[in-house]
């Protein structure tokens, strides 16, 4: 269990999503070893770790791409099972992968609604007006600025495309949003757009998990940092009191003295 040095999480009540004792092996390789994980409503958690630490495996476990070998998953305190991406979607867990999964030839409205188009009554004819109206509403709430909701997404910048992919999860009534390297391919201004968007997701009360290699971005936007190393959760930091040197030390497994690691909980 998590040693609760900062004493904070308990005050926030039930986590939106909680994983307990997750194990996952691929043949002889144990990718996740007894991993606990939790994210609260209105919280952004940064999931960091070196290559091969198990970040992707953990995300894919949550999003239903992998099924766990053992361990439990709770949503708002209720035990759930996730064995397929559809299960995850049904539970309100939406994932934005690095490739964004947008259809370049379709416009913003159609990308947002792809696969769950609003129809005119029972006939499968789309209600374009309703879809466009709702799209504009959501983009306004999230303060996403694009030239028009009727341009093909291929015409948008990288930051705008990332924003559309994230806004799409809101339209799908996500309760937990997983973002895989959301700023990896972006310039400075576009990174800022996306980070602001993540903050707005938090304001909406969503539980957000961000995987990132960029600690500057992580520190800018997340509330807590969870560090994985060699498939184990090795540390948890509260960003208010942690430094990136602490986090790097935890990622690499370097020796450190206990006194220097303010805000850190060591997971034995």
């Amino acid at each position: 269990m998590v040693a609760n040095a900062s004493g904070q999480p308990d005050l926030r009540g039930e986590p939106r999503l909680r994983l307990q004792g997750i194990n996952k092996s691929f043949g002889a390789v144990q990718a996740l070893r007894n991993v606990d994980f939790e994210v609260y409503p209105g919280e952004v958690v940064g999931l960091v770790g070196d290559n091969g630490a198990g970040k992707s495996t953990l995300i894919k476990t949550i999003s239903g791409a992998y099924t766990v070998d053992s361990g439990s998953i709770y949503m708002d305190g209720h035990k759930i099972t996730i064995t397929s991406p559809q299960d995850a979607t049904r539970q309100g867990i939406e994932t934005v992968y690095q490739d964004l999964a947008l259809c370049d030839n379709l416009d913003v409205v159609n990308n947002m609604y792809l696969g769950r188009e609003t129809t005119v009554g029972p006939i499968p004819v789309m209600n374009e007006i309703e879809m466009e109206h709702r799209t504009i509403e959501i983009l306004k709430t999230l303060n996403v600025k694009i030239p028009s909701v009727r341009v093909p997404v291929a015409q948008l910048s990288g930051g705008q495309r990332q924003s559309i992919a994230v806004a799409k999860t809101v339209l799908r009534e996500a309760r937990v949003v997983l973002l895989d390297e959301p700023t990896a391919a972006l310039g400075v201004a576009q990174t800022r757009q996306v980070l602001n968007l993540i903050k707005r997701l938090r304001e909406q009360g969503l539980a957000v998990v961000v995987i990132s290699h960029n600690l500057a971005d992580v520190f800018e936007v997340v509330d807590r940092v969870i560090v994985l190393r060699l498939g184990k959760r090795v540390a948890t930091f509260d960003v208010k009191s942690a430094t990136s040197a602490n986090v790097v030390a935890a990622i690499t497994g370097a020796e450190f003295e206990a006194g220097e690691n303010a805000g850190m909980e060591v997971n034995a």
């Binding site: 490739d99 999964a101 259809c103 030839n105 379709l106 792809l114 696969g115 769950r116 499968p124």
Partner: peptide
């Protein structure tokens, strides 16, 4: 042009993997 099926046709042509991931 106007049905969900038609939209899925364009989606499959544009990015089949994206279409698959949204459940088409």
């Amino acid at each position: 042009r106007f049905t969900t099926f038609g939209r899925h046709v364009y989606a499959v042509g544009g990015n089949a993997e994206a279409a698959r991931r949204v459940g088409i």
